Simulated scan of single mutants.
Amino acid sequence: MAETGVPPVPSPAAMSYPSASVNLPTGTEVFRTYSGAFMCLEIIFGALVWILVAASNVPVPVVQGWVMFVSVTAFACSLLLLLVFLTGLVHMIQTNWNFVDLAYHLTAFVFYFGAFVLEAAVTSLANLIRKENATVINLDNRMLGLNVAATIFAFTVTVCYGCSTVLGFRRWRS
């Protein structure tokens, strides 16, 4: 017989997971925070990087393939993270969401910084003719303009991920 007034003994599985900790609001209130605004900007500008590089017909596949991979993966992961906060799943999944947010944005920042540098290198070295090297990246004005725009938006997304990393670090530390 169960005694009245005595709480049940928690199972060992329930005791092994930390309680969910998150300082960001859930639902549409996410959009009223700086972190939510930066996530939206990351998604929008990241999609623009993806579209602009793809529209340039990827003149340097090895380098710009990495830029495409980073932009598509970061777009999908940022969208997923935003949906987790919008739907309120952060309260159902027991984990330290402040650390998850920090780790994701730091990783995305590092990868996007590399992608930005590679995209800038492709753009700046276009049509450069060197006498000792026969390899030339020939870009017409349309492709050069698309790569310049992709470089600018890649820099913008990198800055957004950097700001999100700083905000995530402040939330995680508190």
Results as ranks from 00 to 15, higher is better:
Glu29Thr: 11
Glu29Gly: 10
Glu29Gln: 13
Thr33Asn: 13
Tyr34Cys: 12
Ser35Trp: 08
Ser35Phe: 08
Ala37Pro: 07
Cys40Gln: 12
Leu41Glu: 14
Glu42Gln: 14
Ile44Trp: 15
Phe45Arg: 12
Val49Pro: 09
Ile51Asp: 04
Val53Tyr: 01
Ala54Trp: 05
Val58Gln: 01
Val58Gly: 04
Val58Ile: 06
Trp66Leu: 14
Trp66Cys: 11
Val67Leu: 09
Phe69Arg: 04
Val72Arg: 06
Thr73Lys: 03
Thr73His: 00
Ala76Lys: 01
Ala76Cys: 02
Leu79Pro: 04
Leu81Val: 02
Leu81Ala: 09
Leu82Tyr: 06
Val84Met: 05
Phe85Thr: 08
Thr87Ser: 12
Gly88Tyr: 12
Gly88Val: 13
Leu89Val: 02
His91Ile: 08
Met92Trp: 10
Thr95Pro: 04
Trp97His: 08
Phe99Tyr: 01
Phe99Val: 02
Leu102Arg: 02
Leu106Ser: 14
Thr107Leu: 00
Val110Thr: 12
Phe111Tyr: 07
Tyr112Glu: 14
Tyr112Lys: 12
Ala115Val: 11
Phe116Val: 08
Glu119Pro: 03
Ala120Leu: 13
Ala120Gly: 06
Asn127Pro: 07
Asn127Cys: 06
Leu128Arg: 12
Arg130Trp: 15
Lys131Phe: 15
Glu132Ile: 15
Glu132His: 15
Asn133Ala: 13
Val136Ser: 11
Leu139Phe: 00
Leu146Met: 10
Asn147Cys: 02
Ile152His: 13
Val157Lys: 13
Val157Glu: 14
Thr158Lys: 10
